[in-house]
Every structure is written in structure tokens, then in C-alpha cells.
């Protein structure tokens, strides 16, 4: 009888799911009528699971150096102790509103998240938190305070002057951080390459290529955003000047690679107030003749940058560009 209890314990431990038991029922029923077959059916229990306590491995038997420690005696259960099992609900859900509230509080999930139903404008050609990858064209119109470092051989000539700045850029936007509300995804942060042209007085034109970063502070169409861009900048051309500083034709002009960076605070993809600066590296190699050398220069600027699809930012940038050419005399 002790053996049959052991077999029953092993069978219970290895009992498959109800479906499997159901599927195996016809074969097992026939096996119950045949002694040899019954032995075969019981054979899956030849390798009982780890829960089988009675089977000891020979390896454990053959290691006399390790003596098993005696198991601690269980504490006796006093007659005065009583245990009760709390009854749960008969079926799902097995949680209530209090449990849901506790889970939300633990993971800082908004109780009633702000739902947004309206889509973006211009099929994401204007930046929007509801968009994933997108492309946009931005134009900047800004006041600029420019300066140029003097040549030490020229008596410390160090001109600084007020000017304007126009910048036209293509931005790619890749969502690098998103948030999910319900079954909708919203972009929280974008980071992607950008490039374009920069213009200032005297026909000065630079190219720039770098990265544009935008962090959305909301999910609405007019959500505020913080922007940060940094890029390599390099001179492409300017108006040549004659002996009497007379303006000549616009020509290609070489210059080492400098950099430009700015920070913007904006609303939606409409536009942003931008503060930034630029540095032009000097071309001052010793092997180069003096006539080809250029001095270090730079600028600080503050202005407005917006998507050209709105119209206003594009008009403002072109107007700033034109007015700067006509009204600013490059020192």
C-alpha cells in the first residue's frame, strides 16, 4: 500500500493539463484493461520531477564527506491558533477601482489623460507632437551683433557692428522619445540632421549642417517646445570689395569650418524665439600668403524662427536678408 501511495503521488505531480488529459483519455482507458500496457502508460513517471523526495541520487549517496544537516523541527501548532482563508470573487475581474488607483499612483499614470483628437496641419510638414518622422523647412529672421577679431599686426583693429541674420534650413525630425496615451503615440523628443544657408550683410553666405533637437512640453497642436540646434558653419561666398571698400560681385569665398548653435522657445510648429551665436574660424596658416588669410569672427543673434508654410516666417526672413544688404555697411 505504501508503494501505491508513492505512485499516486508521482502521477499527480506529473498530471498534464485538463486538455491533455482529455486527449489522452481513450488510450489510457484501454490501457487500464491490460496489465502490461498499464506499465507502459506509467512509464512517463520514470523521471519524476524534482518534487519527488524519495528518490535520492547515487552521487549524493557516495559523498560521505558532506553530511546533511538535520532539518529544524517545525514549530508545533497551538490549539489556540486559528487560520481563515479570505474568500475572493468568483470570477474576473479580480481587481477593483481601488487597486487600479493604487497601480496608477505607483507608476505615476494620469487618472484622466488629456485626449487629443485633431490631427496635425499640413500632413506633418509643420512639426507636431502627433507626428512621427517628418521634414520641415524653417526660416529665421534675427537681429545680429557681429564682430571680427583684429590682426595683431594691424594695431588692434577689432570691428563690431549691428546687422541682421537670415537663415533657411531643412530639418528632419526623428522621434527619439515618445509617450503613449491610450492607443496613440505622441512624440516627446526629436533629434535629426538639419542643414541650410545663413546670410548676413555684405552678401555673406554660410552653409551649415548639424543636428536639430526639439522637446515637446505638451501633446497639443500648440504645445510649447524647447529647441536646440548646433551645426558646423562654413563660408560659401560674399560680395567682393574693392580698394575703396566698394561692393563688388558676389563670389565664392573660402573659410575654415566654424560652428553655430542656438536655443529656441516655441509654440507648436508655428515658430519660436531663438537666441544663438556663431563662430568663424580664422584661416591663418603660416604657409598661406597674407592676402588669403581671414580673421576670426562671430555673431550673437536673437530673432524669430518659423515654418515657411505659415508664410510669415519666410517673408520676414527674406525681408531681413534684403534690408541687411542695403542698410548695413560691412566694416
Amino acid at each position: 500500500m505504501k508503494l501505491s501511495v508513492s505512485v499516486l503521488y508521482a502521477l499527480l505531480a506529473s498530471q498534464p493539463d485538463a486538455d491533455e488529459a482529455t486527449a489522452a483519455q481513450p488510450d489510457a482507458s484501454s490501457a487500464a484493461t491490460d496489465g502490461d500496457a498499464a506499465t507502459d502508460v506509467a512509464s512517463p513517471t520514470e523521471d519524476p520531477p524534482a518534487a519527488e523526495p524519495e528518490v535520492r541520487t547515487p552521487a549524493a549517496e557516495s559523498s560521505p564527506a558532506v553530511s546533511p544537516e538535520p532539518e529544524p523541527e517545525p514549530e508545533p501548532i497551538l490549539d489556540s491558533e486559528r487560520y481563515t482563508v479570505a474568500g475572493g470573487p468568483d470570477g474576473p475581474p479580480f481587481y477593483d477601482d481601488a487597486d487600479t488607483a493604487s497601480l496608477r499612483a505607483r507608476h505615476e499614470i494620469e487618472v484622466e489623460p488629456l485626449e487629443r483628437t485633431e490631427g496635425p496641419r499640413w500632413r506633418c510638414l509643420i512639426a507636431d507632437p502627433a507626428c512621427g518622422r517628418s521634414v520641415e523647412v524653417n526660416a529665421l529672421a534675427a537681429y545680429s551683433f557681429r564682430g571680427r577679431q583684429g590682426d595683431v599686426s594691424g594695431g588692434g583693429n577689432d570691428p563690431r557692428w549691428h546687422s541682421g541674420r537670415a537663415q533657411y534650413d531643412v530639418w528632419l525630425n526623428f522621434p527619439v522619445m515618445t509617450e503613449v496615451v491610450g492607443n496613440k503615440k505622441f512624440t516627446r523628443m526629436t533629434l535629426a540632421p538639419k542643414g541650410g544657408l545663413i546670410a548676413s550683410d555684405g552678401g555673406s553666405t554660410w552653409g551649415n549642417l548639424g543636428m536639430a533637437f526639439r522637446y515637446w512640453l505638451g501633446r497639443g497642436r500648440w504645445a510649447p517646445a524647447v529647441e536646440f540646434t548646433s551645426a558646423l558653419s562654413f563660408k560659401l561666398g560674399e560680395n567682393a570689395r574693392g580698394m575703396d571698400n566698394e561692393r563688388g560681385d558676389w563670389t565664392m569665398t573660402r573659410g575654415p569650418v566654424g560652428f553655430t548653435a542656438d536655443v529656441g522657445f516655441g509654440l507648436g510648429g508655428f515658430g519660436s524665439i531663438v537666441v544663438g551665436g556663431q563662430y568663424d574660424s580664422p584661416f591663418a596658416r603660416e604657409e598661406i600668403s597674407d592676402e588669403y588669410r581671414t580673421a576670426a569672427g562671430g555673431a550673437f543673434f536673437i530673432g524669430f524662427r518659423g515654418n515657411i508654410l505659415w508664410g510669415g516666417p519666410a517673408a520676414a526672413a527674406v525681408a531681413t536678408h534684403a534690408v541687411t544688404q542695403r542698410s548695413v555697411q560691412t566694416p
Binding site: 508503494l3 499516486l8 498530471q15 483519455q25 489510457a28 490501457a31 487500464a32 498499464a38 506499465t39
Partner: peptide, 30 residues
């Protein structure tokens, strides 16, 4: 010497009895 398998310990009659008891408690096939 330790038993190698459960079938070494159990007579066919006993194991068939245990198995039929378990199968009787299984739900009907769907």
C-alpha cells in the same frame, strides 16, 4: 540498491488502479 524507475516499484495492477482513478476525475472530451 535504489529503484531506477517507478515501474520497478509498482505492480501493474496497482498502477492501473491509480491511473483509472485519475482518469475518472478528468472532464469529458470537448
Amino acid at each position: 540498491m535504489y529503484p531506477r524507475t517507478q515501474s520497478d516499484l509498482v505492480s501493474p495492477t496497482v498502477s492501473a488502479f491509480a491511473l483509472s482513478s485519475l482518469l475518472a476525475a478528468s472532464p469529458a472530451a470537448e
